[in-house]
Simulated scan of single mutants.
Amino acid sequence: MYLADAAWPDLESYFESESIALVPLGSTEQHGPHLPEGTDHLIAEAFAREAADQTGFLRTPPVRIGVSPHHQQFPGTMSVDPPAFRDYVESFTRSLTTHGIDRVIYVNAHGGNVDHLREVGRRVREDGTAFAVEWMWDESIPEQVNDAFEHNGPHGGPKETALIQHLHPDLVHEDRLEDARDTGLVEVSQDVGRVHGARTFYDSIENSENGVFGDQTEATAEIGAQLFDAASDELVALAEWLDEQPFEDLMPRDHV
């Protein structure tokens, strides 16, 4: 069920029997010369929609702008200050709880949001309001993602390219894949941007001229479909597991 399309009597019926909400979150930021700036929120919305369709759980409207200051040098990137982002997410999460929701899955597709969503989850859990957990698709199937590509990348690489080729092929500039590879950073290692063990970079442009990593030419829509199905299965399993947990077991343990 999609909250924004439903009438309140139907939502009232849902809240009487269910207590889970799927909240998709992403970003609007550069993803290289070949992918749309909406890549992350498009991916998050697709996963939330698929999981909601399979389980019948509630899906909320998406959060399409996240914490992205590290991509600000590229035209079009939009970003929210971290405190404002955290407060906003916490506020609408608490709003959901007034209707009976006490379990929230943040279906997240943007790395810059992770720490802030974890912080919000801690806040609402510590006062016993709700259990909110952050989920990222590629972290749910890490071995399959890595095995799919010889040169994977954390941003704008073949994994995101393959998903958008599958989900929104009309938004992929297929004629720019080689340029994305050749003007970006193909080989990604733990040593990139580090000096004597310290991370000396803050922005993606410092490590990649075009802001993306990996070999985008390795991506195909077929691989994207396989990754989407596998990660969707994990999200569905997470939602069903969360639904089965006694609420008290999800809350903080008593002080020793």
Rank of each mutant, 00 (worst) to 15 (best):
E150Q: 10
L167H: 05
L167F: 08
G211C: 08
P142N: 13
A162L: 09
V124Y: 09
D191M: 08
V145S: 10
V172N: 02
P169M: 04
H196I: 02
E178V: 07
Y202A: 14
F149S: 14
Q165N: 03
S204V: 13
L235T: 06
Y202R: 13
S232E: 14
F201D: 02
V133A: 03
D138E: 14
N207I: 14
R123G: 08
V120N: 03
L235A: 09
G197K: 07
L235G: 02
L177C: 05
F131G: 10
F201C: 00
N152M: 10
A162S: 13
L235M: 15
N146P: 04
H155N: 02
I164C: 13
D138L: 08
A230N: 01
N210W: 00
T200R: 14
G128K: 13
A148H: 02
L227T: 01
V124M: 09
V172Y: 08
Q226F: 00
V188E: 05
W137H: 13
H155E: 12
G121M: 04
G128A: 05
D191Q: 15
F213V: 01
G211V: 01
D138K: 12
E134T: 14
E143Q: 11
G197P: 10
E218Q: 11
R176Y: 05
V172E: 10
I141W: 04
H155G: 07
S204F: 15
I205V: 14
